[in-house]
Design a protein around this nucleic acid. Sequence first.
DNA 1: ATTTATGCAAATCATTTGCACATAG
DNA 2: CTATGTGCAAATGATTTGCATAAAT
Lengths: 130, 130
Amino acid sequence: MQRNTFQRQVVLSAVQTLCHATADEIHRFVAASHPGISKATVYRNLGLLSENGQISHIEATSGADYFDCTTSPHYHLQCTECGKIFDVPFLYLGELNHIPVDPGFTVTGHTVLFKGVCALCNNNKERKIK
Amino acid sequence: MQRNTFQRQVVLSAVQTLCHATADEIHRFVAASHPGISKATVYRNLGLLSENGQISHIEATSGADYFDCTTSPHYHLQCTECGKIFDVPFLYLGELNHIPVDPGFTVTGHTVLFKGVCALCNNNKERKIK
DNA sequence: ATTTATGCAAATCATTTGCACATAG
DNA sequence: CTATGTGCAAATGATTTGCATAAAT
């Protein structure tokens, strides 16, 4: 049976405050008020909380993974300049899980990740040119 | 100007032979006949060849990335048991790059990766149960 | 009391990088 | 010749793990 530790509560509440954050960002946030909490504990709790469906795990294709306070299915846009994650609302292609592949294969899910440049980074780029 | 080194030719030909392979698999394949070629060189050439559009880079969400001998746009299915990559033909959602997001954002591309269990691994699982 | 969780440090895995030497153009 | 590429080993970054101790139930 899973226990309701102080550390787990603090990690969950950090994810809910930060909305989209990496394990390291969550650890830094948590450690600010509770310096004793280790990064390993943050990782272990992020894993458990995602398995429980209390948060969701955003698997990036480069750099660190992110954790999301929202658990409803939706896709993300990641800025290739700063790494930040943004929600892509109003789009979820559930039917993609039923694509016809060789019988024998079992499709269990799919990931969609958009790449782009966020407003802030676009702005910084323009300034550099000038 | 880019040079046409022996090592680069060997790496390209390995990717074309293996079709879907990780840097490590490509290095092992290459090293079998040319033991002098280092893994760093394999990585550097895989990077250059993808930039040139001679091969493509499959960014995985866990474990090692793969390199693909094909360069036409298509998605992949990765087996969560063995990590192998399979093509998902006849499906490319180019229109996804035009999803409406906040103005200021620039969407430059998207990744779709299916997760599932391949025929071979499904088979192995069944045997374990019995 | 017993099992689950924690903190720490070390280990792992994929990939990148610095640097001295080699070689393609 | 000289810029680009190579091999080696060390560095990096994200994440995981072993182990002794702590604390939830």
